[in-house]
Amino acid sequence: MSVTLSAAKQARLVPAVQAKGGRIIAGGTLIVADLNYGADSVALITLDRLGFDKIAVKGGKVTLGAMVTMAAVARDRRLKFLHPVANSIGGPAVRAMATIGGNLFAPAPYGDMTAALLTLDAEITLHDGKATRKLPIETFLAQRRKLQKHCVVSISFAAPSAGTFHYVKVVRRKPVSASVVTIAAVIPQKAGKIKDARIALGAMAANAIRARKAEAALEGRKLGNDIIATAAKLIAAEASPADDAYATAWYRREIAPVHFVRLLAA
């Protein structure tokens, strides 16, 4: 086994390295763990010199560089709504290392930030070696394996209006563990009616997914206990959770509605 490490000088040069088997190392929390298990020879490439660790908030639009860490998010006063998300990931050391970009590739039951970004309808900017492209996060997640060969530059989204973003992560060990179920939701209301509700689930499929049936149930309705209960029944309709060391698929399906109700009723 041999590992080489180089710092990319430009994002456009990264995909070429990846095409030859190279891998991006961001925070290292996933990839170095793999190396320690004894991965094969690999050329690692860092994005450390690309300035991807910047957080920009402009006119309600938030742009997080791919190398922004969970700790940086958790410290940024402009991103208060994301603090519970960032702080639900690992312990402080993991948060200081793990990045937004890396989280996009974290397999279930990890990837809670990605679930949050999914409800925010985030847009992923990546470089495929020729040009930068922008992809809706849902499209990105659907092609996640393939897109490992591209270089994620940043993630952008509109900051949700105050009080519309909701997040809960159910854990087996307090204060943090990997997820049993993660639910993120943005429930905007217009004239007393729900409009453009977005709900995402973590640990309920191989990657974060939208709960569109539950969203549809909420759409155009007044937020209240009845409608929350109706949506809750549909919350796991599109999910395909796995059994793992934390919980069974059965248990995940059973408690997702309970936590959804608690999240929105609170």
């Binding site: 204060p175 990997a178 793992d244 934390y246």
Partner: peptide, 9 residues
């Protein structure tokens, strides 16, 4: 991560 034990919380 996978081996569950009570945390400090």
């Amino acid at each position: 991560n996978q081996y569950l034990m009570p945390g400090p919380g």
